[in-house]
Design a protein around this nucleic acid. Structure first.
Lengths: 228, 228
DNA sequence: GGGTGGTGTGACTGGCCGGTCATATTGTAC
DNA sequence: GTACAATATGACCGGCCAGTCACACCACCC
């Protein structure tokens, strides 16, 4: 955790430090990130750095907490068309948020990617329930609920599917952004939301159709496609 | 490329160097791998290292070529039940190979994972055809063939699906191995093939059912499940 | 004025790094 | 044996690193 001294700093100075740290962590994994590079980029003395943070891991953790907040912001910025999303609308929303985050904060997304690859535990077993849970458990809960609501096929191995969704969520955002191509800057600048762009939504439709057909108990996907 | 001197070395010595290099590259990404660590682990002098390799990237490239060969070995070790695999049997085989490789050569798999994450281009556009191709193009070709054979739905966005399969192939192996659990050592030691283990095959069935239902033109998946 | 506590500073230390090179050793051909 | 090439060696160099610390600065209070 950053020191009290750091929290007392004028916001402008804190932002300079954080911008420099984000640039460094986006370009190098924590393992090979350099304190010297950060302090010189931020324009502060090395001694000051160690008055603000215990070490570089401390700063890294602080940046991760910023990423977490920004993610919530992005999720909340997406329009919510209904209070109770059905199962696959919820999944779409989660993936949409990942893409929107990638566009609006590519550097933060890059830091997250470095972190994911360094944490090599693919899943863990809950010591209380003895249940196996992949990652943070979001998709696990999503799938369990989906089965309860008769939206997801009961034969689906929940934990494996959760893991699959997790790696898709983590990996597909940069690809989709590349596909979106020249629209990305407009979305990044806030002039456009990926929600309102038909090209982007076509890609999402296709991805969701594949996932929904794969997971749904009674897939209705594209059945009209061949009858055209 | 390693020097002539290196190729002239007695095999035993070369193996010592390669073992040390593999251990180092499996534990650290190329960026933060250490020549000193490798030479001390291999028991050779630093000067010798630079008689064998131009630098650490040179050695890394050499190890990658070894990985490539071992992968082919693993693929060829899988039983081939038919000369012409149908579309989804082929996909199953590819994923099976990834898992078998992860079990038999976890260190090599880890090196590959580091490499994948460092090469950050998610896809590229072929300058001749103008066609977009994900990764090495294997899955792209697979899906195109699948559509021609009426096995895969024509509405599937081939390139996006190829990218999705690629990240699944790259990410799911460690997870499946963890699920297989205590069977892995027996498979690693060659006493058992993952093909012959029912637990492993159940997991594969489930994964393949999800993928097949998601991609197939006329999914027959588990339709008997609910009629039981 | 003087005292005190919070903050800023950058030269310095010790360590690890990649890479070099003069020298030593070994192998081979005669 | 001699001569010559191939190979092995580790001390050494300059560079970058994380982390420290003695000192300087500044604001506030008495």
């Amino acid at each position: 955790m950053p020191t009290k001294t750091y929290h007392n700093l004028p916001e402008e100075k804190r932002l300079k430090v954080e911008r420099a740290a984000i640039a460094e962590f986006a370009a190098n994994p924590l393992q090979s990130a350099s304190v010297n590079a950060i302090v010189s980029e931020a324009g502060i003395a090395k001694g000051s750095f160690y008055q603000y943070f215990e070490n570089i891991d401390d700063l890294h953790g602080h940046i991760l907490s910023i990423i977490y907040k920004k993610k919530i912001e992005v999720i909340n910025s997406l329009p919510l068309d209904s209070a109770n999303l059905d199962t696959f609308r919820y999944l779409r929303r989660v993936l949409q948020a990942a893409v929107e985050f990638q566009i609006r904060h590519p550097d933060l997304a890059s830091i997250e990617r470095f972190r994911r690859m360094n944490s090599n535990h693919s899943s863990s077993v809950d010591p209380e329930t003895g249940e196996r849970v992949s990652g943070d458990g979001r998709f696990h809960a999503f799938l369990t609920q989906g089965i309860l609501h008769d939206d997801i096929a009961t034969w689906v191995d929940v934990d494996m599917a959760a893991f699959m969704l997790e790696i898709i969520e983590g990996g597909i955002a940069p690809y989709l952004v590349e596909r979106i191509g020249d629209k990305a800057p407009a979305i990044a600048s806030g002039k456009l939301s990926s929600i309102d762009d038909p090209t982007t939504q076509d890609l999402f439709d296709n991805l969701m159709d594949i996932l929904e057909a794969g997971l749904a108990r009674d897939p209705q996907i594209r059945k009209d496609y061949y009858s055209k």
